[in-house]
Design a protein around this nucleic acid. Structure first.
Lengths: 223, 223
DNA sequence: TCACTAATGTACGAACTAGTACGTTAGCTA
DNA sequence: TAGCTAACGTACTAGTTCGTACATTAGTGA
């Protein structure tokens, strides 16, 4: 996350009034609060209290709780987009490239549990905020283009037997990474196993790669 | 779900006061309301209004909103347990048995979106209600025992190369089934593809089976 | 340095919401 | 059939929560 207690970058002396900083600070705190308690569980007063500013400013900059949540989502998706754009796997052979992609996805999910929670919350609300957002509708994902190119190359070179769709493969990889974080608590409570146990991290990371590669390289009966 | 507008089974004349029926009716409506709006979004008054009885009765039978939600979860998990106990795959060969198990899991998730939503909601609350419930702590899953036996048999007969843990395989299968339903809305909004589109049902069902079998039968480098 | 406006703070209100005090009655049993 | 109690309804309250009216000031450009 950006900028909570940002200590006046050198050269810029700390102004008392700074729209950009105030806005960013509200977004930071709101992200935490929404992720912690869900949309309805989150309290506007609580967000304001944990900010250097007041509730008045939330309404001044964002208009309301609903729009604030939308802004939080927009920024959170922006972060993951940026990460995916850094993806540099084109120099690898298709098998290694897919494995690398899966690992990067795995790592990103693990490192951003708040993002996972926000997405879960948005699904409870049937993605109404995304639908209402101009920035987020049909935004897609940079990772998808990468997957498309790797699959193409893998198919051409005969390494991948399956005629797999890029969106489907993305769903397959995401589901494993997402579930591991999103359902950590119920899974742990029911089965007594912490899916996010650091000691098991490498194990699950490998398992995901093995699964995806096995699927892509397996012989399959014709449909 | 059970018993909303249950029309006085023959022989039992409809009593005005019927504790069991009232309790069940509250649970039915509460399940819908909690699944619809989340724990904090759900309104006790709304649940009461959609019942033949009043809010007073919710407190009379369950004690409070929190306990009502716990009761809803307990019943929802009870339903899936029952379904899993019906599982009869021991007569199949390991590959067919695993595929069948995956399909049953797939079907159950698809048929119970409310259950998926409740589990998502409970994860937002870090499984506090499950932890507080005597019925649900470490409840496990009948499917797990089945998986254990199939894996054992598959390993013994040399069909499965991998030394896979039953809980891990359960997580793998669940993650795909769960994500497809739980993240349907954000995935659809972002990628323009409905993972629960009936026309794609068979496709994803096959994909899951292929994935799991590929993983279990693939050759793997030693750790 | 003056005036203008973007940015900010205070105080309050209307509506909602979980929970309860108190009174009533259906249906069973002795 | 009388009486007892589990089951039920009404009406209310205390506390919360989103949102806003109104007043104020820091910073900037003329």
């Amino acid at each position: 996350m950006t900028s909570v207690e940002e200590p006046a970058r050198p050269g810029e002396r700390e102004r008392v009034r700074d729209a950009a900083r105030t806005r960013a600070e509200i977004l930071d705190v709101a992200t935490q609060e929404f992720a912690r308690a869900g949309y309805d569980g989150a309290r506007v007063d609580e967000i304001a209290a944990r900010t250097r500013t007041t509730k008045r400013m939330i309404y001044y900059y964002f208009g309301g709780k609903e729009q604030l949540f939308t802004a939080v989502l927009e920024r959170a998706y922006g972060v993951i987009r940026e990460a995916e754009q850094q993806l540099d796997v084109e120099h690898l052979d298709p098998v290694a490239a897919i494995r690398r992609l899966a690992e990067v996805t795995f790592d990103h999910h693990e490192q951003h549990p708040d993002f996972i929670r926000l997405v879960s919350i948005e699904n409870i609300h049937e993605a109404h905020h995304i639908a209402a957002s101009e920035k987020l509708g049909r935004i897609g994902s940079p990772a998808l283009d990468v997957i498309r190119r790797i699959l193409e190359e893998g198919r051409r070179s005969g390494l991948f037997t399956a005629d797999v769709d890029a969106v489907d493969l993305h769903a397959m990889i995401s589901s494993f990474c997402f579930f591991r974080v999103s359902n950590r608590h119920t899974f742990g409570a029911l089965f007594g196993r912490d899916l996010v146990d650091p000691a098991q991290r490498a194990h699950y990371r490998t398992m995901l790669g093995d699964m995806v590669i096995a699927y892509l390289t397996a012989e399959r009966a014709a449909d």
